Amino acid sequence: MFHIYDIQKSPDGIAFDKVFDLEKELQERNKEILGLSPVAVTGKVRFESGFFFLDYQMTYTITLASSRSMEPVHLDENQSVNELFVASEAALKEQDLVDEDLVLVVEDDQINLAESVADNILLAIPIKVLTPEEEAGADLPSGTNWTVMTEAGYQSNAQAKKEANSPFAQLQGLFDEEDK
């Protein structure tokens, strides 16, 4: 946690290199997270022209369930984060930037690094998670009278059905037999 007055006093900004254990907190916020390694965060917070710049690099391994098989998948993540804050007094002058979510407002005169890290991990969770075997193989799950299809497969199947149900489908090949 960085106090805005400490940041303003430091002309070069404040560098940091921290490790956060956020697994329990993030599992409470998102039940899809099966596991999270300690998050290594390296960066700098600085004050310039009325704005507070929080720039950092975070590295972690997150475990999520596969979208297909529900098998645990370990994803190694390396993410750059750049956030821009404005002090609450200045927020009134920069209200249009705040309304467009381009600038965050400093609360209680402090920038909470752990909160920023947690929020950015949650924002980076992918929708589609596959095991290496699922990514490599083209076989999709299927069962009795059902199968999972890709969108391209669905489109080609729909086109084939459309052509088969065409009133002119019965006429195909009619002239080919006469040429023999």
Rank of each mutant, 00 (worst) to 15 (best):
T63I: 04
A138Y: 07
I62D: 06
L140Q: 06
F51G: 05
L104Q: 10
Y56E: 04
P132R: 01
V86F: 07
L113P: 15
N82M: 15
Q110E: 10
W146D: 02
L140D: 02
A136W: 00
S66R: 01
E134V: 00
P72K: 03
V73F: 14
F51A: 03
L122A: 13
A90S: 09
I62Q: 14
Q79D: 13
T131Y: 01
L122I: 14
I111Y: 01
A136Q: 02
I125Y: 12
Q110I: 14
L92E: 13
S67H: 02
N120E: 14
S49I: 13
L97F: 13
E134P: 01
L123C: 05
F47E: 10
S142R: 08
L102M: 15
E77Y: 07
V117S: 13
D119I: 13
V81C: 07
Y60P: 01
A65D: 05
L140C: 04
N145M: 04
G137R: 03
A90C: 05
Q95N: 12
T61G: 15
L102V: 00
H74V: 00
I111G: 02
Q57I: 11
S142W: 13
M70L: 14
S67A: 03
E115K: 10
A118T: 01
T144E: 11
A90H: 11
D96L: 13
N145W: 04
L54A: 03
A65H: 06
F85V: 00
I62N: 10
Q95K: 14
A114Q: 11
T131N: 00
D109M: 08
N120F: 06
E107W: 12
E133H: 06
L92R: 13
I127A: 06
E94W: 14
A136V: 05
I125A: 10
D76W: 09
D119T: 15
P126Q: 07
P141E: 05
T59L: 09
E100C: 08
D96R: 12
